[in-house]
């Protein structure tokens, strides 16, 4: 770890003020990605602005046809929330499947979404449910948010405050974990929403992607059988020692069907 100045922000405004004009500052949420990155000396921020003391960012609320998670809601608190389990059980289940208990007790939805790891779970739900990302400056639609590997529409110093997920008719997330890291080698989030079906894949390539061919098939008939014969091209997928692009493409079909079946 290189030296940096540590600040504890007292409010959203305070955090934003501390970050303003300093492109080398970093927010810290649960630290589950940031701290390992610092320890391996892969990042060298001048300032780290800790969001842990901002109580309003931890809220979890359901109502008005949406579940709204404060950016600092931890994976464990989302997984345990009766409101989330009732309104969007798939979201609670997704949070329950992230990492291990230590990671879930510290890691946050805001951190995960801002980080946009191409194998992370939350981005699949954000895009799959057509969620809205609220920042200290504006609102960003999920479809406009995830740009590419570890890159989002956030401006430097822009702070996610909450994310609201419209309640779908049905949804499910099925993840095929990497045997080593247990991040998603392929994760598929499916949702039947008021605006139509969504099928979102994480882990395949440079970030979350929608599989429009599958969405169209599910719009016609919501059933796993509707996805029979719809293959995803291996060229849409990356490969590594645990999964070739061909294998990943195959897993997308398998996981998508399982997700639709699980959604009911």
């Amino acid at each position: 770890m290189y030296d940096f100045a540590y600040h504890k922000a007292s409010s959203v405004a305070d955090a934003a003020a501390k970050a303003k004009g300093n492109d080398d500052a970093k927010f810290m949420a649960g630290g589950q990605t940031l701290i390992p990155t610092l320890k391996q000396r892969l990042a060298r921020p001048s300032d780290v602005i800790d969001l842990a003391a901002i109580a309003d960012l931890k809220s979890i609320a359901a109502g008005g046809g949406a579940v709204t998670l404060g950016a600092m809601a931890t994976h464990a608190s989302v997984a345990a929330s009766a409101d989330v389990k009732k309104a969007i059980p798939a979201l609670a289940a997704l949070a329950e499947g992230i990492g291990d208990p230590q990671v879930r007790n510290r890691g946050t939805v805001g951190g995960s979404v801002a980080n946009n790891d191409p194998a992370a779970d939350y981005p699949a739900a954000v895009l799959g449910l057509g969620a809205t990302i609220h920042t200290d400056q504006r609102q960003i639609a999920a479809d406009d948010f995830f740009l590419s590997v570890f890159t989002t529409a956030l401006n430097p110093g822009e702070l996610i405050t909450r994310i609201s997920f419209p309640v779908p008719e049905k949804a499910a997330y099925v993840k095929f974990p990497s045997p080593a890291s247990r991040y998603a080698m392929i994760g598929v989030f499916v949702a039947k929403t008021a605006k139509g079906a969504r099928v979102v894949v994480t882990g395949a390539g440079n970030g979350v992607i929608r599989i429009k061919s599958m969405e169209a098939a599910l719009d016609k008939a919501w059933s796993a059988a509707s996805l029979d014969g719809i293959a995803v091209s291996a060229s849409a997928c990356n490969g590594d020692i645990h999964g070739s692009s061909e294998y990943r493409a195959h897993l997308i079909s398998v996981m998508a069907k399982r997700a639709v079946a699980a959604a009911g």
Binding site: S181, I241, H242
Partner: peptide, 25 residues
């Protein structure tokens, strides 16, 4: 079922951390 140390052809250790080296859990 899981563990495998992998080097690439050039001699770099691909499984240099738990992100890539699969330990039994």
């Amino acid at each position: 079922l899981l563990e495998n140390c992998v080097y690439d052809k050039s001699g770099q250790l691909i499984t240099g951390s738990y992100m890539d080296y699969a330990m039994p859990r």
